[in-house]
Amino acid sequence: MSSASPPQGNVSAVESTQPEALDPILEVEDLAVHFFARSRLTRRSASPLKAVDGVSFSLAAGKTLGLVGESGCGKSTTALAVMRLVDPTAGRILFHGKDLGGYSRNQLRDVRRGIQMVFQDPHASLDPRMRVGASIAEPLQIHHLGDRDAVRARVIELLEMVGMDRVHADRFPHQFSGGQLQRVGIARALALDPQVLVLDEPVSALDVSIQAQIITLLQDLQAELGLAYLFISHDLSVVRHVCDRVAVMYLGRIVEQGERDGIYRRASHPYTQSLLSAVPRPDPRRRGAARRIVLTGDLPNAVSPPSGCHFRTRCWKAEQRCAEVSPELVDRLGNGNRAACHFAETLS
């Protein structure tokens, strides 16, 4: 198949409704994903686990949005909901301005050509019994894109795009290192010429020298193909290096969102500030120089999060109001960062 096939089906002209992103290809509005655990004894459902609770963001073509946060903050569930691999409880997901909400499985199949996903663990996300060439070819076959020879040619083209060799197509996953398998995962995601890649911790399982290879590969592919990335990671240094915009999540909600430099230089939410201060800097000269904000306590239980602001139980600024009123995600300081904190202020 040709690598230049245009987006098909449900793709229409871009309708820009949000001023902050000029050309949003993917918009998520008030997304919520709640999981209901049912008590076996009473058959009554307990209170839901709100894994994602009112998350909104937009992603522009050719840009990278970073979604950061610690384990359990809902960043991966957000990714799965965008892919409709879990069904959202509420909210809208607009791809090229069209709401995916009411789509059937068949309609989704067309849309999924435009949004593809790369997973964290390449060993787990490739079938160990399939040659990697067959894994890469599978999406092409599902979508009936070309005959045997065309598929084979496209697989080789994809392997070469991700820096591998045609001979690798006939090998099995166990014959590769983690970095090579992640390249295969990226090749498979690129097979259908998507416009958006959802990358869920794509480099977290890799050693630092291999991580740098995959990061530069992703950057090169983005420049070449104009891809938009939703980049999910817990690693703030990696996110700073690859993202244009950043959203910080805590217990299912976005607590701060803005341009990359705004977040890293002028963070105004206490959680963002503590996260940034906690990252060990690879620079021994700075040791002891930076003020480290050490948060006390652990993440609260997501089934019964604190009232009002979810972060208040670990926040040094918390007052009565934080327990009563959940803070809106708005730009309080006029510096471009939207922060969900009643007492947002930048650190001096």
Binding site: S209, A212, S237, R240
Partner: peptide, 22 residues
Amino acid sequence: LMASLPRLDSDVRRLVPIPGHP
């Protein structure tokens, strides 16, 4: 290793990875 590291405090235009694998 140093050239492969994304930094939190300073701008690195491009990481220079070590080619190949261990």
